[in-house]
């Protein structure tokens, strides 16, 4: 269980998060939605322990995040970051193996190798393990990072997985695949929290959606409850038509054209 209580975070006088409370159970995939600058990444960085909230507490498995050591935290949660610049030309296999670093001292055990093999297959990068990371396309790099992050907590029950825009540069196949993996992990008991930009992807996969605006929690609920044309207008200031997928009964959105006053 992850519980965030009245988190407030600010840089200087500018507050980025105000009084945010929510919780995530094992087995749940929570998607965070919000406009640019709403505080999604900041919230995620607070949850990961990278940033310390000014007020409020974040509890993971009954203990506050800050009371865990860096090492302990690495055994409980993994983070897929938005920006991943690798400074040396490591091979794909080497990068994925780094996900297992917290678990072994000098030489990877049989389990470590097995897990690396498994996540490599799952993320569809099996045929590029020997390639050098910098030569990969943005989307391929993102899948390698996903594999590394999955490897880190693969065999840890009820682990926390945080993802900051994990599908940003992926094609539609791997967008679906990544979210399917996330959902699947949640079914295995993980707590998965992902920041997304694509409302339809969120509607398709999220168990719950947290909507942020100006650093505050605006809505929190199931996709059906939260994703309405009215709410989307409130958050993104965009009109949209809502339809229902006749097969899955899930909503999907088509934005209406935005009129722009011609620039003088």
């Amino acid at each position: 269980m992850l519980t965030a209580e009245t988190i407030t975070y600010q840089i200087g006088q500018r507050s980025l998060l105000k009084d945010i409370s929510f919780s995530v159970r094992p087995g749940e995939l929570l998607v965070i939605l919000g406009a640019n600058g709403a505080g999604k990444s900041t919230l995620l960085r607070n949850l990961s322990g990278e940033l310390k909230p000014l007020k409020g507490t974040i509890q993971l498995k009954g203990k506050t995040i800050s009371s865990y050591s860096t090492k302990e935290l690495a055994m409980l949660r993994a983070v897929m970051n938005q920006q991943n610049i690798v400074s040396l030309p490591f091979s794909v296999a080497e990068i994925v193996m780094m996900g297992r670093y917290p678990h072994y001292k000098n030489h990877p055990a049989e389990t470590d190798l097995q897990i690396v093999e498994e996540v490599t297959r799952l993320t569809g990068i099996s045929d590029m393990t020997e390639r050098s990371y910098p030569t990969l396309s943005g989307g391929e790099q993102q899948r390698v990072q996903l594999a590394r992050v999955l490897a880190q907590v693969w065999n840890i029950p009820n682990a926390l997985l945080l993802m900051d825009e994990p599908v940003a540069s992926l094609d539609i196949q791997y967008q679906q695949q990544t979210l399917a993996i996330a959902k699947n992990l949640a079914r295995r008991g993980f707590m998965v929290i992902s920041v997304l930009h694509d409302i339809n992807l969120a509607a398709q996969y999220a168990d719950r959606i947290l909507m942020l605006k100006n650093g505050r929690k605006w809505y929190d609920g199931s996709a059906a409850e939260v994703l309405t044309a009215k709410n989307i207008y409130e958050i993104f200031e965009i009109d949209s038509d809502v339809y229902t997928n006749p097969r899955t009964l899930k909503h999907f959105f088509i934005p209406k054209d935005v009129r722009i006053n011609s620039i003088p």
């Binding site: 302990e72 935290l73 055994m75 991943n84 690798v86 040396l88 990068i95 780094m98 996900g99 880190q152």
Partner: peptide, 11 residues
């Protein structure tokens, strides 16, 4: 090489 934030996330 992954980044300092990433290194810290790896314990």
């Amino acid at each position: 090489a992954l980044g300092e934030v990433q290194a810290s996330q790896l314990g």
